Computed example of a mutant assay.
Amino acid sequence: MNASDEEITALLHTGVSNNAVVQELHVDKHRVAALRRTLGLPAHQPQPLTLEQKWATKTRKVDGGHLHWTGTLGSSAGTPVLAYRGTVVTAASIAFRIRTGRTPVGYVLPECDYHHCVAPDHVEDEPGRQKAREQLRYLTGGTARPDRCVHGHDQAAHGKFEEDGTSYCGRCKAEKRAAARARETAGV
């Protein structure tokens, strides 16, 4: 082997790709591929980043312990999203999984004042938000929410809390929104 073949062989044995050898040593790609075959080395298998590692590459720390999303924004609301292995997930849901180790339930939203913050300690899923809001209700002198709303919906299943701890019926709210959309569609 001449010196160039030795250099190529040394790099191939480190586990890099053929393209990496070509770029580093400025040699012909066919020559590198032939040497890989002669040496009996398998084709390079890239080590893809985990979802969490890829998420981390798209964040930037800002004052207050917040994380700013530098990656893709989806929808008209500008929700931070990440494409990974053929699916798109929200950056906040990944942050939630990093903190809790579980898949979130419902929307994951920041509970701080930084718009679209994706810091794991700043995001919460629907049950977590509702629990915190219920606790706030009691801390501010509120009483337990009623068992049923004025329309008879079971509040154990449909009851929710606003940010200030005020209770409301999630089903009633959803029905009102659906009726409003229907009126808009009908042109009323």
Rank of each mutant, 00 (worst) to 15 (best):
5 D>I: 07
64 G>T: 07
119 A>K: 08
49 L>Y: 00
83 A>Y: 08
74 G>C: 05
66 H>D: 11
25 L>M: 07
129 R>A: 08
80 P>R: 10
173 K>L: 09
48 P>E: 08
52 E>W: 04
71 G>V: 03
40 G>S: 05
60 R>K: 15
139 L>F: 04
156 A>W: 08
133 R>E: 13
4 S>A: 14
127 P>W: 01
69 W>R: 08
47 Q>K: 11
2 N>I: 15
175 E>F: 11
111 E>K: 01
49 L>T: 01
40 G>M: 05
129 R>S: 14
38 T>E: 00
67 L>D: 02
35 L>H: 00
16 V>F: 12
4 S>I: 08
112 C>G: 05
150 V>C: 06
143 T>K: 11
78 G>Y: 01
28 D>W: 07
147 D>N: 07
156 A>T: 15
154 D>V: 03
54 K>N: 00
132 A>F: 04
38 T>I: 04
36 R>K: 01
111 E>R: 02
61 K>T: 04
167 S>C: 06
87 T>C: 09
174 A>H: 11
76 S>D: 15
45 Q>A: 12
56 A>G: 05
141 G>S: 03
105 V>K: 07
101 G>D: 04
62 V>M: 13
65 G>T: 01
136 L>R: 12
46 P>L: 10
149 C>G: 02
150 V>F: 09
67 L>T: 03
29 K>D: 03
122 H>T: 12
1 M>A: 10
124 E>W: 12
14 T>C: 14
128 G>M: 14
90 T>H: 00
43 A>Y: 13
34 A>Q: 13
79 T>K: 00
38 T>Y: 01
50 T>W: 05
90 T>S: 14
172 C>E: 09
122 H>V: 13
87 T>G: 07
161 F>N: 08
78 G>N: 01
113 D>P: 00
59 T>G: 07
55 W>C: 11
25 L>Y: 06
73 L>C: 09
170 G>T: 10
83 A>E: 00
57 T>I: 04
173 K>I: 00
182 A>Q: 04
112 C>T: 11
21 V>K: 10
29 K>L: 04
155 Q>C: 05
174 A>C: 11
25 L>N: 05
98 I>T: 14
57 T>M: 06
110 P>Y: 07
9 T>D: 15
188 V>N: 05
84 Y>L: 14
91 A>V: 14
135 Q>A: 14
26 H>E: 06
40 G>N: 09
102 R>E: 12
118 V>Y: 10
15 G>W: 10
42 P>G: 08
11 L>Y: 12
64 G>D: 06
15 G>K: 10
154 D>S: 01
46 P>K: 13
79 T>W: 00
123 V>N: 10
35 L>S: 06
177 R>N: 13
116 H>M: 15
95 A>D: 12
